[in-house]
């Protein structure tokens, strides 16, 4: 088996009386697409927030590439190769599509204490940004404002921004949320084309999950109740009762 890229050990997070993350121990192997599924409110976004460094866990450890990153800030983790997309589309609406991606490129092109040269004429940012847009096939929209794009296109843009940070691991929080079947198919294709990048995919769309995932973990009430290959998870009785039954 490949080596473990990301590992959580007994991760815990409570919000008042709600246990959003309940002793979660999870391994994401290098190169795999690992899906996390579970009903609404199961704690999937909370898990991603802790992995990306936006939220501090109450207890437990997060290892990335064998290093303990539990205490590191989100920006440090980004520089180690962790990227995330947000469940609620999170692009810069007032900027163009290309500007959005260029800003992501810039984050990983040295410090930004450059006060004089116009960033929009900087080929060191524009060229790689354009390349990322080609990967998600948005190159024709490069100069449109993000606010002028459709929902599905914005989700694609988010992927391009995450890609532009040169990640080893992408944490994707429901990239297909709110999408129609065509847009979903396009997103599945986009994510499939990104081989070499490990993915932790949170998604409700079961067709997409079964199309993409190498392994699936099932989360219910903050707890992981099963992890395994798609076939194993599909066959798991507890999972069927807790989740797949109601989704099917």
């Amino acid at each position: 088996m490949a080596s473990t890229l990301l590992e959580t050990q007994e991760l815990q997070k409570r919000f008042g009386g709600v246990t959003a993350t309940d002793h979660v121990s999870l391994q994401v192997e290098e190169g795999e697409c690992h899906a996390v599924i579970g009903p609404n409110g199961a704690g999937k976004t909370t898990l991603i927030a802790q992995l990306s460094g936006m939220l501090a866990p109450d207890a437990g450890t997060i290892l990335f590439n064998g290093k303990n990153i539990t205490q590191l800030t989100a920006q440090r983790r980004s520089h180690m190769g962790l990227a995330r997309s947000f469940q609620i589309t999170s692009v810069f609406m007032g900027l163009t599509v290309l500007d959005n991606v260029a800003l992501a490129v810039q984050a990983h092109t040295g410090h930004s204490f450059h006060f004089w040269r116009p960033a929009r004429q900087d080929q060191a940012l524009r060229a790689p940004a354009m390349e990322m847009l080609e990967k998600v096939r948005l190159q024709d929209r490069a100069n449109d404002l993000a606010s002028e794009m459709s929902h599905g296109e914005r989700r694609q843009l988010e992927i391009a921004m995450a890609l532009a940070t040169g990640p080893h691991l992408m944490l994707l929080d429901e990239p297909m949320a709110g999408m129609g079947p065509e847009e979903t198919a396009r997103m599945v294709e986009t994510l499939k084309s990104l081989d070499g990048i490990t993915m932790l995919l949170v998604e409700h769309d079961m067709d997409a999950v079964f199309a993409l995932a190498d392994r699936i973990s099932v989360m219910v009430y903050g707890r992981l109740i099963a992890t395994g290959s798609p076939a194993e998870v599909r066959a798991n009785e507890e999972v069927r009762q807790a989740y797949l039954g109601e989704a099917a």
Partner: peptide, 19 residues
């Protein structure tokens, strides 16, 4: 400038910028 892009990004969405 690059600097200006960062402060404008941080205005729009600081969490996004940090991630």
């Amino acid at each position: 400038s690059r600097f200006g892009m960062v402060i404008q990004g941080a205005k729009g969405n600081e969490d996004r910028m940090r991630s």
